[in-house]
Design a protein around this nucleic acid. Sequence first.
DNA 1: AAAAAAACTGACTGACCAATCAGTAGTGTT
DNA 2: AACACTACTGATTGGTCAGTCAGTTTTTTT
Lengths: 194, 194
Amino acid sequence: MSKKDDILKSAITLFADRGFQDASMTEVAKMAGVSGATVFYHFKSKEALFLIALETVKDGIIKEFDHYLSEHDFESGIELAEGIISFYLYLAGTMEEWFLLLHSHYPYKLALVNKECRSHLEKIYNSLVDIFERAVALGREDGSINAGDTRKTALVIFSMVDGVVRFKIYNLYDTGALFNELINSCRKILKYKT
Amino acid sequence: MSKKDDILKSAITLFADRGFQDASMTEVAKMAGVSGATVFYHFKSKEALFLIALETVKDGIIKEFDHYLSEHDFESGIELAEGIISFYLYLAGTMEEWFLLLHSHYPYKLALVNKECRSHLEKIYNSLVDIFERAVALGREDGSINAGDTRKTALVIFSMVDGVVRFKIYNLYDTGALFNELINSCRKILKYKT
DNA sequence: AAAAAAACTGACTGACCAATCAGTAGTGTT
DNA sequence: AACACTACTGATTGGTCAGTCAGTTTTTTT
């Protein structure tokens, strides 16, 4: 792995763990084992480094979901939906850094004034909601899902799952104990007519 | 309102809007219309000010819910649950600062090393989940709710509602358009047997 | 009105941090 | 070996910030 990659990896860890403002470029450099000036040689500013970190997270999430969906077969829309939910929770456990970064306030503040940041966030959330939406649409075709508006149903399911992820990464509740209840709740939302 | 109150009010606004690290004591002082040193006269450190801000939010949320519940009558457990959800979303709209503060990363990081912070957060979340749980328990008694485990059902509903609130305060989706879908989804989760 | 206590302030300090720059080391090309 | 180019660094700078302190103003008490 190149030093540039080391820096990027350290940056993701530190931005996730401490937030943008509280993670210093000196710390990033130290963690990556390079001098402070080297960080600025590879990334022109702290904000630029953050944007590339966010882009890396974006690409990672999309790639992981593509891989998961291509490797598994599902018998119905509702099974696909349950698979996606399980994988989302699994990913939030193994790649906690990504989700901490996405749950921090900074990117959403930056998005208000920075087009690139806004674009990354939109891409991430649209991709995720699209994945949920496709499952709902499939289920409505095969009869396993009877919920009303496809997009809105996908959004509510996504809100719920992401809400549980937030509880997990902020150490508020034990998500493991909640998994079955979450799947059951989603099943009810999807199965029954609105 | 005393200057101490002015300072506290400004602190809540700035901590919510910029996060702990990015809100400076000088800015708090400026917004409150006092000198920088006055802030330190009333609050011994930035962290102490944050803790009192968090405590104020805690008291505010609990008081608002107490007031709402004492002023309204509900015919069944499920109606109570729907009322609570509506009021939670309403509060997140009118008192956005409180929820921004609760959705920032800092208090949860601080809670790992600071007992008082941990205590405030536990009080807030336990109070809120208890409110949801009482509605579920009531509904199970009067037959309007048939979901399984009371506590876990309350937790999942709370996750979902708080997830939608996060989308709202981070400007990700229009929550207004999602309100009916959210209420319908909750109804399904609560109404049907697990 | 005098004394005491509380509220408040301007000026300052030491620490930290993002960013710069001049220069050095390494790597490949001719 | 000379050249060019990329990767990297130590030292420095200008700015910001939390927190302190000595001293002033305001309020309360006697």
